[in-house]
Design a protein around this nucleic acid. Structure first.
Lengths: 156, 156
DNA sequence: TCCAATGATGGGTCGCAACCTACAATAATC
DNA sequence: GATTATTGTAGGTTGCGACCCATCATTGGA
């Protein structure tokens, strides 16, 4: 009846089933953890998510007009300016003015930037390994495929 | 060679494969969308995530000392005060002083609160249905199970 | 040639979540 | 009975992400 309490402080941590029954809740929580841990790693290199996203876009699709970069990553152009300020200062990216339209800046990945991107993806994979530790290899593949389906339908 | 551009503004939106290859990236993006959409729905009822979490905790585990609620949901006690202020004002929750320890407030769900929680979970399920539209029923179950495994390993 | 549109930038604001500190009331301990 | 610890409250701060506006240089079109 009345709780037979052991002297300890009895921390109650179980999450309400009403919440854990929602896939959206799990997605939100696990996603937040994924983002948080990755951000923490990147912070160790004085970078944030957008820096990595820019490097990845340049590596995958080649040089962009700065405006196109912002469009592709759906980030405000003025914020893109700031991200690129950082990356150029670090020598990871080269901004050159397009001679055919001198308003435009062409952004290209430098070798140093490519190397940094490799390090960042290693970091990200390490975090991923840690986060997905309870899953087998096959389960991870499955999870990735399912998330991919959902992700591709996000904008449309 | 030089792009044969149709007059349109040619928006480039494809996400860098370097990013989409990372499960953590997909988790982060899909999770953010889940949270965002749900938050938008709740905002339609002038509530936020924490309000729903509190109602769910009370529904699932019964009355709590206010302190325990904060502990269970890992929220700062001072923030919990504000959330409960809202919920009591709406009549969704009853705060009564514990006669055995007059420092403590016992928080209990009211019938109105239970009804509101039902509406909120309906909202959440609607969002979930929309978000997981590209998945079959079986796939959704699988996704939920996989996320559950990861989620349960988050704290430990 | 003049005007409207565009690309990039600087310098903001806003909302939210998380956190922190001081304090009043009450309880527990010595 | 005096001191220390705990509960809840009030009122902050901080950091971050997203967004917005004014400005300047440049270009393209009327």
């Amino acid at each position: 009846m009345t709780e037979t309490v052991t002297t300890a402080t009895e921390t109650v941590t179980e999450t309400p089933p009403t919440l854990t029954a929602l896939t959206t809740y799990l997605l939100s929580r696990v996603g937040k953890s994924a983002r948080g841990r990755t951000a923490a790693r990147l912070a160790g290199r004085d970078l944030r998510m957008w820096h990595m996203a820019v490097l990845a876009a340049l590596a995958d699709f080649g040089p962009h007009a700065q405006r196109e970069l912002a469009e592709r990553l759906t980030i405000d152009p003025s914020d893109m300016t700031k991200v690129l300020d950082d990356l150029t200062a670090l020598g990871h990216v080269e901004r050159t003015r397009d001679p055919r339209d001198r308003r435009r800046l062409t952004v290209a990945l430098s070798p140093a930037g490519a190397a940094e991107l490799a390090r960042l993806t290693d970091d990200a994979l390490a975090v991923q390994d840690e986060l997905l530790a309870p899953l087998t290899g096959r389960e991870r593949e499955r999870l990735h495929a399912l998330l991919g389906k959902v992700f591709r339908s996000l904008d449309g």
